[in-house]
Simulated assay, not measured.
Amino acid sequence: MIAFLASLVLALAAVPPGITLTPEGQDDTRTSMTLEERLDERLAALAAASSESEGEAIADEVRSIWRQSGGATASLLLDRAEQAIAERDTAAAERAYAHMRILEPDFAEGWVASARLAMAGGDWDFALDALTQAVSLEPRRFDAYALLGRTLEQASEPAAALLAYEEALRVHPWHPQARQARARLENQLAGRAL
């Protein structure tokens, strides 16, 4: 048995870098994709989802990929901010997010997380700026568009909010909050038109 394990270790050590070993017949394309390729594939699957439950499962994968797209520093700062929020220390969470925005200004997840915290604290102006930055960095951020819609509703801009919700639904057709908000705003705006 030891000889078998030793020969297996030696065989694995001889595999050239970049080669993925999978059981015969198993598709290894998911493991060989870059993070960006995986994101593109999951977003395409999200747009084609046939039910809300399927859409939400894929959306969770997309959110996970977005979170992984930052560097180690961004990941650490996200973790610290989330821990601070769990401990109800919003000042520490704000500091962690501020550092992240300075150190990783192209990390859309940091802007979305900062906007969520700002919205919870009633800072709608900062939330609007942060969400605008997030969607400029990653135009497929359905979560940012949904939050942007909520922020615009808070600013009494229902027509602009409706556009934001529609943009969220273009990427994630089953987004539950965006679907509800779109229906509510369409009724509200139709009532004003009468």
Rank of each mutant, 00 (worst) to 15 (best):
A91K: 09
A91G: 06
A57K: 10
M119R: 14
L78E: 10
S114H: 01
R38P: 01
G110L: 00
A190P: 03
L128Y: 08
A168M: 07
L46T: 01
S64P: 07
L152F: 06
A115Y: 00
A115G: 03
A84Y: 06
A190R: 15
V62H: 03
V112L: 04
S114N: 04
L148I: 02
E157A: 11
A134V: 01
V112C: 00
A84E: 07
L103R: 10
T132E: 09
G18F: 07
A49N: 01
A178Q: 05
W66L: 03
A144R: 00
E61V: 06
R30S: 08
E157S: 10
G55M: 03
I19V: 15
A98F: 09
G122H: 04
R42V: 08
E157V: 02
A160F: 05
A91M: 11
S156Y: 13
R182L: 08
Q68M: 13
D143K: 00
T20D: 02
E167Q: 15
E87F: 09
I2P: 04
A13T: 10
N187V: 05
L39T: 11
Q180K: 14
R141T: 02
E52L: 05
S7L: 12
T90A: 08
T34S: 15
L117Q: 03
E87R: 15
L103M: 10
T22S: 13
D27A: 07
D40A: 15
S69T: 07
P176L: 08
A84T: 09
P176N: 04
R80Q: 14
I19P: 03
E157K: 14
E94Q: 14
F4M: 11
A44P: 11
L194I: 13
S64R: 15
E54T: 12
E52G: 09
W111Y: 09
V135K: 00
T31C: 04
A44N: 12
